[in-house]
Design a protein around this nucleic acid. Structure first.
Length: 766
DNA sequence: GCAAGGTC
């Protein structure tokens, strides 16, 4: 081989080697040659790139180096740090939320691969979805050269579970890897340094609670969704043929809130009431006094009181109270407030508000928008953030004033211990449309919360008119303060005459007014989010998604700003209600949340909770299958469509040949009714050939494990089945011989089936 | 084609 060619090959090999091995592996080798073999290398993993970047900057300062990972969103930051008295090279990277997801395996993934009932104990696998493979590969590559792993995920329940996903991926590569957890209350220098000096073991219990939640959500959600969808598409082909009719532990209670309010309005009967109104006019100003009894639901009684007053309608001023009053500036902005105010004040719905906020965040204009915190950390440099806004011609002068007095944020009461409240991080005036609106809102809210409460002076005047008491109030605004930068709120001054205690005057009018009680208003998006938060439905990051889901499913619709249930939503809620199941009520989810907390506390075992919840939901599901027609009945009233018969479709469990048909020699396969328990093995030649073997409906799950007996290896007559414990009562017609043998345990039996010819005349419906 | 939870 000519020399230049060898050189070229060598350089190609070197390039390949460099692309496979991370750069720092060379560094380590190089430095160990220099006699620094004792330097330790630690892999640090945060929940998202933003956190990794900030933590690395706090620990590494100006000496932090950045390089690319395999995922373009998750960078790698490197710096030196002394951990537990030992110098270490820190490799800091991140995932993007959950690294692993779970789903059903094999035939159970297929909607027609099993009865939805089987999903309560079908195998579930956990795996890395394809779009996160690059993140996983980065971890696998980086951990090879590290001796320790430190988990820096958010310090909440999901964060702990994400931590264990990272641990699993890393320990699959390095089984003896030492793992520690950093716990921090906010991403600030002191908090992060405290965390690294007090590393702890990760908390398995907290992570277990999340495993239970996610497995339940999957099994229950999928079972009900498939059942509802497959059945109702058949029963109402005109309306629902293409409709996905999903069930979820968060979307259904959200739908429930909308339906409940709608029904409260429907059944509302207005009630008339009467009140006495007193007014006092001098020059152009009329002061209205309101009655301390507020209102009476009895017209005659009100009339009697009015008559009494009118016998001697002179007012005596009993008390004048004059005192300062303030209107409080807003607390720092968290996600839920951003969504609610976006929807209410900017008329941008929660989902869109969050989409816009995420874009502003990735462009560096605002801080991380998913936060439950409404308290600014003590040592945060707010003045610097306020100063950035001084060039603006709309709020720059206000920002300058805030700087002059020193930013003094009103503080809320919530902290997620990871992210600060939402605030602007960069000044811009180059935004358009909703991005401009949301950015302006975030800036104004930030400046408002850092300024001063509005100051006013209130006067309250109590009067007595011949025994009846009335009150009026006036308000003078002294300093608008934060209101000058915050047009989303208003404070109206109200004029009042000046009164003195003991003063007597004749009211200008004394009248009786009639009115009636008003129905509650339909829910707005802000109301809905507030209800979800109150009942613990979803998280701050998912409220908008659940609302979006029930809109997409046509369960609810929007009329202006009001949420109204659609026919499908009403029918589903009524259907389950008529079975006596609180599927659309928030307490089911709340009870699960309480159990999850017990798992995390260590007062309940995760496996027990999972089994108990599955048992309960399974029982509900079975009864829902039995009474499914109640949903049809409820829906047909709303849809106005006649019900088509629900054919209990037969589901082919898999494509495995169980045995050959003794009549026509075609394959016999395992089948099941779509929505019921019970199984049978039937000939693929149906309907020409009707050979079938039936199992009783008490059998809840049958799985063909292999086609040969594990004892005698005979094919094809020997089949192995798995039955649910306690439900094993296989039944065979007289003209079948069955034998039992080769048990592994009481759940597994090997059955031998020898079909006889006369069975061909039986008529199974499948 | 299912859930809810993370996040880009």
């Amino acid at each position: 081989m000519p020399f230049p060619s060898i050189l070229s090959q060598l350089s190609k090999k070197l390039a390949l080697l460099r692309s496979v091995l991370p750069l720092n592996q060379y560094c380590i080798k190089y430095s160990s040659c220099k006699g620094q073999a004792g330097t330790m290398k630690i892999l640090n993993v945060a929940e998202k790139n933003d956190a990794a970047k900030n933590i690395a900057n706090h620990l590494g300062g100006g000496n932090t180096r950045r390089r690319e990972g395999l995922s373009k969103f998750n960078k790698i930051y490197e710096f030196e740090y002394n951990v537990r008295g030992q110098n270490a090279t820190m490799v800091m990277t991140s995932v993007s939320g959950h690294l692993l997801t779970h789903d059903f395996a094999g035939q159970y993934k297929n909607w027609r691969g099993c009865s939805p009932l089987a999903l309560f104990d079908a195998p579930v696998i956990k795996f890395c979805p394809p779009d996160y493979e690059n993140i996983k590969k980065t971890l696998e590559r980086e951990v090879r050269s590290c001796q320790m792993l430190i988990i820096w995920t958010d310090c909440d329940r999901e964060g702990e579970n994400i931590g264990y996903e990272i641990i699993k991926v890393c320990q699959d590569v390095k089984p003896n890897l030492q793992v520690l957890r950093a716990r921090f209350s906010e991403i600030t220098g002191p908090s992060i340094r405290r965390a690294i000096n007090t590393l702890e073991p990760p908390n398995q219990l907290v992570s277990d609670a999340v495993e239970v939640r996610s497995e339940l959500d999957l099994r229950i959600g999928a079972a009900f969704t498939r059942f509802q969808t497959l059945r109702l598409q058949q029963v109402f082909p005109e309306n629902l043929k293409e409709q996905l009719i999903s069930y979820g532990s968060c979307q259904f209670p959200t739908l429930g809130f909308v339906v409940e309010r709608y029904k409260a309005i429907e059944r509302f009967i207005p009630e008339p009431f009467w009140k006495i109104l007193v007014s006092h006019t001098i020059d152009d100003l009329t002061v209205n006094f309101s009655w301390k009894r507020v209102r009476l639901f009895d017209e005659l009684a009100c009339q009697v009181l009015l008559d009494t007053i009118q016998e001697q309608p002179e007012a005596v001023v009993e008390k004048v109270v004059s005192k300062p009053k303030s209107k409080w500036r807003p607390v720092p902005l968290d996600t839920i407030e951003l969504e609610k105010l976006g929807s209410k004040k900017l008329k941008i719905n929660a989902k869109e508000t969050m989409r816009v906020a995420e874009r502003l965040y990735t462009q560096g204009f605002i801080s991380y928008p998913r936060t439950e915190t409404n308290i600014f950390p003590k040592n945060m440099n707010l003045a610097q953030l306020v100063e950035m806004q001084t060039p603006d011609n709309r709020w720059g002068a206000f920002a300058q004033n805030v700087l002059h007095d020193g930013p003094n944020p009103r503080q809320g009461k919530k902290s997620d211990e990871a992210h600060p409240p939402i605030h602007p991080t960069k000044y811009t005036q180059g935004l358009q449309g909703n991005e401009a609106k949301v950015y302006e809102f975030i800036v104004r809210h930030f400046l408002a919360c850092c300024s001063k409460d509005a100051q006013g002076h209130e006067t309250i005047v109590d009067i007595d008119v011949n025994g009846e008491k009335f009150v009026a109030s006036g308000l003078r605004i002294i300093a608008r303060n934060y209101l000058d930068v915050y047009p989303y709120e208003n404070w109206k001054a109200k004029e009042i005459h000046s009164y003195e205690e003991g003063q007597r005057f004749h009211p200008s009018t004394v009248d009786m007014g009639e009115s009636q009680t008003e129905a509650p208003k339909p829910l707005t998006e802000a109301d809905l989010i507030a209800l979800m938060e109150k009942h613990g439905i979803g998280t701050d990051a998912t409220h908008a998604d659940h609302i979006e889901t029930i809109k997409n499913r046509s369960y609810v619709g929007l009329e202006g700003i009001n949420f109204l249930p659609g026919k499908l939503g009403l029918g589903l809620v009524d259907g389950y209600d008529s079975m006596g199941f609180a599927m659309s009520k928030p307490n089911l989810r709340a009870e699960l949340e309480a159990d999850l907390q017990r798992i995390a506390d260590g007062t309940r075992n995760a496996g027990e909770v999972l089994a108990e919840q599955l048992r309960n939901y399974r029982a509900v599901f079975e009864r829902a299958l039995e009474q499914a027609s109640k949903i049809d009945v409820a829906l047909s009233q709303y849809l106005g469509e006649a019900r088509q018969p629900a054919v209990d479709a037969v589901v082919q469990m898999n494509h495995k040949k169980v045995c050959a048909c003794p009549l026509c020699q075609q394959d016999m396969v395992l089948k099941q009714k779509q929505n019921g328990p019970g199984f049978f093995i039937s000939c693929m030649g149906f309907p020409d050939c009707r050979t079938a073997i039936w199992f009783p409906s008490s059998v809840e799950n049958v799985e063909v494990l292999d086609q040969t007996c594990n004892n005698c290896n005979t094919r094809p007559q020997k089949i192995r089945f798995r039955f649910r414990r306690g439900a094993y009562q296989p039944f065979f017609p007289d003209n079948y011989e069955s034998c039992v043998g080769g048990c592994d345990n009481d759940l597994m039996e090997t059955l031998e089936i020898r079909p006889l010819r006369d069975l061909a005349n039986r008529n199974p419906p499948g």
